[in-house]
Design a protein around this nucleic acid. Structure first.
Lengths: 141, 141
DNA sequence: GATTTTTAATTAGCGAGAGTAATGACGTAA
DNA sequence: TTACGTCATTACTCTCGCTAATTAAAAATC
């Protein structure tokens, strides 16, 4: 890693932290906490999951996840079912209503970011657009 | 904005949100809450600020900010002084100790991100490095 | 097969950190 | 001087995370 690589890393970290803070304030669903939204996002990605899996992915303890799931179920946003092979486990999946909320949230945040990006020069935006797939992969490593 | 622009925006948003979550788990100072760290970061950027300004920037209510500042002062990380022209106000600035904590946090997160980025191909990393200044500007618009 | 250990989810209780309502001090305008 | 707005703070409440403990089920061991 060269010196200019390190500069780029620093700029990237700073940009990521700052942009995410600003994106977070583009509110959509006021009745859902950030963690609830995040859980729905995780469920959207992997279809269904057990409370333990969700707790690990969201970096919370299992009892906290139990409560979050209960709240989401109460709001009609997730379903809980027994695991087909293991009666200790529960399988959580999200409802169509939750999918709609996620779509709307995504749409709004994308619109905000697109508006922000329109203030870049053509060259700047071209570089960002060129790097987007690599950034996507970086985030999913 | 073309269709492929919108795809890039979506990838960028997703990457930013995901990377920031992961960066947040590279803990440094366990005795400081995320908001406390963020307040120190804000003070680092603008030198000093009133509680009201800090509350607005951090998107919390003034009483919450009063408490956060009190805790930071107790930990020796900020100083509170009367405003020179307005006796209603307080001016908050950070100590040298806080600056050291911020530096260490930044260093650790940069190291983590650099390690992650080393898993990209040369082409991918080149694109990200090329886009870093534009991303930085985007984040500060 | 019986027993022990491990795994998974849940309940109960606690505390940190956010919000709201109210208050007091200060500054400015009338 | 009075009225109003600004600023920070105090007091109280609530949300949402954690830990400790419990129960049920599955897996491992004897």
């Amino acid at each position: 890693m060269s010196e200019e690589d390190l500069v780029a890393v620093n700029q990237l970290r700073s940009s990521v932290m700052r942009l995410s803070r600003r994106l977070k304030h583009q509110h959509v669903e006021q009745s859902l906490s950030p963690t609830e939204m995040s859980v729905l996002g995780t469920l959207a990605r992997c279809g269904s999951a057990t409370p333990g899996e969700l707790a690990r992915r969201e970096h919370v303890q299992p009892p906290s996840m139990t409560r979050i799931i209960a709240m989401l179920e109460e709001k009609g946003l997730v379903r809980r079912e027994s695991h087909p092979q293991d009666r200790r486990q529960v399988v959580v999946s999200m409802t169509e209503q939750a999918a709609e909320i996620l779509d709307e949230s995504r749409r709004r945040r994308n619109a905000w970011l697109a508006e922000l990006a329109s203030q870049l020069t053509d060259e700047e935006w071209a570089a960002v657009r060129e790097a987007a797939p690599a950034l996507y992969r970086l985030a999913h490593l």
